[in-house]
Simulated assay, not measured.
Amino acid sequence: MDKVRLDRFLWASRFYKTRSLSTDACKRNWISVNDLTAKPSKEVRIGDIIKIKKSSHYRSIKIIVLLNKRVGASKVEDYIEDITSPEEIEKEREHNQNRKLFNLSTSHKGRPSKKQRRDLEEFLYHGGED
């Protein structure tokens, strides 16, 4: 095996949960191989450099061993080499930190509980009557 489809490799190396998600990423031009945008059917080889666009940064990897079947998350590092620049790693760290802060601040969404509703009614309708 000296070449594998790009979408299959991205799925097998756990960059995407499903093969259809990796196919969609290729179709949206989020993936480039050796600095050229690539279709899902592009065949990748050992030594190719894949650049993956994430929401806030780019991730760059170099293929060490080709994958045809999905492997465990702990074994992925045996097949690829992460060559992402330190600036991009810092962008990813900042993005993840901001996401955590945002998720903490928006934890009160949805309908209020019965107690919260009663407290709101008390405040809004009966708060000014003293």
Score class of each variant (00 low, 15 high):
Leu67Phe: 02
Val44Pro: 02
Arg28Glu: 15
Lys54Trp: 06
Asn96Ser: 07
Ser22Glu: 03
Ser105Leu: 11
Ile46Gln: 05
Asp35Val: 00
Thr23Leu: 08
Arg93Cys: 04
Ile61Tyr: 09
Ala25Val: 06
Ile61Ala: 08
Arg28Val: 00
Ile49Leu: 05
His57Arg: 13
Pro40Lys: 12
Ser56Glu: 13
Lys62Phe: 06
Arg28Pro: 00
Ile63Pro: 10
Val33Ala: 13
Val71Gly: 06
Asn68Arg: 13
Ser107Pro: 00
Asn29Ser: 14
Pro86Thr: 01
Arg70Leu: 01
Asn29Ile: 01
Val44Cys: 05
Arg59Gly: 02
Phe15Ile: 01
Tyr16Cys: 06
Ala12Asp: 08
Asp24Arg: 13
Asn68Leu: 06
Ser41Asn: 14
Val65Leu: 11
Ile46Asn: 05
Ile64Val: 14
Asn68Pro: 00
Ser56Ile: 00
Thr18Ala: 07
Glu92Gly: 02
Lys62Pro: 03
Glu94Gln: 13
Asp35Leu: 07
Glu77His: 10
Thr18Ile: 08
Ile83Cys: 03
Leu67Arg: 08
Tyr79Ser: 14
Glu87Val: 06
Arg93Trp: 03
Ile46Asp: 02
Leu101Pro: 01
His95Cys: 05
Val44Asn: 02
Ser22Pro: 04
Thr106Ser: 13
Thr84Cys: 09
Ala25Gly: 14
Ser85Glu: 15
Lys51Gly: 01
Thr106Gly: 04
Leu104Met: 12
Ser41Arg: 09
Ser13Thr: 09
Ser60Met: 06
Val76Gly: 02
Thr23Val: 09
Glu87Lys: 12
His57Gly: 10
Leu101Asp: 07
Ile63Phe: 04
Asp24Leu: 14
Lys17Asp: 02
Gly47Ile: 01
Arg14Glu: 03
Tyr58Lys: 13
Lys54Pro: 00
Arg14Asp: 06
Asp35Cys: 04
Ile89Gly: 01
Glu88His: 04
Leu101Ile: 12
Ser105Gly: 07
Asn98Arg: 13
Val71Asn: 12
Asn34Asp: 08
Asn96Gln: 12
Gly72Asn: 11
Ile31Phe: 03
Ile50Gly: 08
Arg70Val: 01
Tyr58Cys: 12
Ile50Tyr: 06
Ala12Glu: 10
Leu21Val: 10
Val65Met: 09
Ser56Asn: 14
Glu81Arg: 12
Ala73Glu: 11
Lys53Gln: 15
Thr18Lys: 11
Asn34Gln: 11
Lys39Leu: 04
Val71Gln: 12
Phe102Asn: 12
His57Asp: 13
Lys51Pro: 00
Phe102Ile: 11
Asn34Leu: 05
Arg99Ser: 05
Lys42Ala: 06
Asp82Trp: 03
Ala12Gln: 06
Glu92Lys: 12
Ile52Val: 07
Ile64Gly: 07
Glu43Leu: 14
Lys53Ser: 15
Ala38Gly: 02
Glu77Gln: 15
Ile50Glu: 08
Ile31Gly: 05
Asp48Val: 01
Glu43Asp: 09
Ala25Trp: 11
